[in-house]
Amino acid sequence: MKKSIITLFLLISGAHLSFAQAPAAASVPTQADKEVLELSKSKWVWMADKDVEKLNTLFDEKCVFVHMGGSWGKTQELNVIKSGNIWYKQAEVYSSSVNILGNTAILLNDIDLLAVVGGNEVIHAFMVTEVYVK
């Protein structure tokens, strides 16, 4: 019986792995990709510096910020940054990918975020989605 269970487990595991996708070949970033990546990098610096003037120019009036505790618009996000209620001290970006569709760029970042929330310094891993429209 034990041998049957182990065999069944190995068959299921093998079947699961056979359906897994092979990793995509690394592509060379285009100039547009590089520009979006640089803009995102600048945005994280502006957030750490609490530079709401530059962020105000970057963020669209209809943008939405999704947090673990809720979501809100541009005005509230800028107020949170300015007041220091959330201080995005440093984003350690481990990997990024850009997908450009027409005049829209979708950027995915795998980050560790060092932040101060409610007076407590925390580090948390995040997958961040950023959407930029030219």
Rank of each mutant, 00 (worst) to 15 (best):
K2Y: 10
K3W: 14
K3F: 13
I5M: 14
I6P: 09
L10H: 05
L10R: 04
L11V: 11
L11A: 12
I12D: 08
I12M: 15
S13L: 13
G14F: 10
G14T: 03
A15D: 07
A20L: 14
A22W: 06
P23E: 04
A26M: 09
A32N: 06
D33V: 05
K34C: 07
E38I: 13
S40Y: 11
S40W: 07
K41Y: 06
K43H: 02
D49Y: 06
V52W: 08
E53Y: 09
L58M: 06
C63K: 01
V66Q: 09
G69S: 13
S71G: 13
W72R: 07
W72A: 05
W72V: 00
G73F: 01
G73N: 05
K74L: 03
K74T: 01
E77W: 05
L78R: 10
L78V: 12
V80Y: 11
K82L: 02
G84H: 02
G84A: 03
I86P: 03
W87L: 15
W87K: 12
K89W: 04
Q90R: 14
A91P: 01
Y94D: 13
S96C: 04
S96G: 04
S97V: 15
S97R: 11
V98T: 06
I100G: 02
L101R: 08
G102S: 00
N103L: 08
A105I: 01
I106M: 08
L107H: 01
N109P: 07
D112Y: 12
D112E: 15
A115H: 04
A115Y: 02
V117C: 12
G118K: 07
G118I: 03
G119H: 00
G119L: 03
N120R: 05
E121R: 01
I123S: 05
A125S: 14
F126E: 03
F126H: 14
M127D: 15
